[in-house]
Amino acid sequence: MANNAPNPATDMNRRQQFVESYRLTKKTDRFIGLILLATFLISGALGFVLFVLLPGTGAIELALGIVGGLMIGLLTTLIVFGRRAQKSAFAQMEGQPGAAASALRLLRRGWKVDAVVGFTKQQDMVHRVVGPPGIVLIGEGNPNRLPKLMASERRKHERVAADTPVHEVIAGNEEGQVPLRKLVRHVQKLGRGVKPAELTDVLNRIKALDAQRSTIPIPKGPVPTSMKGNRGNMKGR
Rank of each mutant, 00 (worst) to 15 (best):
A171H: 02
T120V: 07
D163Q: 14
V129N: 03
E94D: 12
L104E: 04
P147Q: 11
V117R: 07
R154V: 13
L75F: 13
L137P: 07
I60E: 13
I170K: 01
F90Y: 15
P97Y: 05
L149G: 10
G139M: 10
L74K: 07
G176T: 11
L62I: 13
V116A: 08
P132T: 09
M150N: 11
L64D: 01
L104S: 09
N144V: 02
A91S: 13
G95W: 11
L75E: 05
A171V: 04
L64A: 09
E94G: 03
F90L: 00
P132N: 10
A162G: 10
G47E: 02
A100Q: 08
E168P: 01
T164Y: 05
T120K: 07
G172W: 08
L70H: 00
G139C: 05
N173E: 15
I79S: 09
R109V: 05
E140Y: 02
D163W: 01
T164K: 07
R128N: 03
V126S: 06
K87I: 04
K148I: 07
V126A: 04
A161C: 14
I138V: 15
I135S: 09
Q92K: 12
E61A: 15
P132V: 11
E61L: 03
A151M: 11
S102W: 05
I66V: 15
F48R: 01
A99L: 02
A151I: 01
M93P: 02
V126N: 08
A99P: 08
L74M: 13
M150W: 04
F90W: 12
K121S: 14
A91Q: 13
A162H: 11
V166R: 10
L70Y: 01
E94I: 11
I170L: 14
A85Y: 00
M150F: 08
M125T: 09
P143F: 08
R128G: 03
F81M: 04
G118I: 01
G68R: 05
Q96E: 14
E168C: 05
R155F: 02
I135E: 09
L62D: 01
L149E: 12
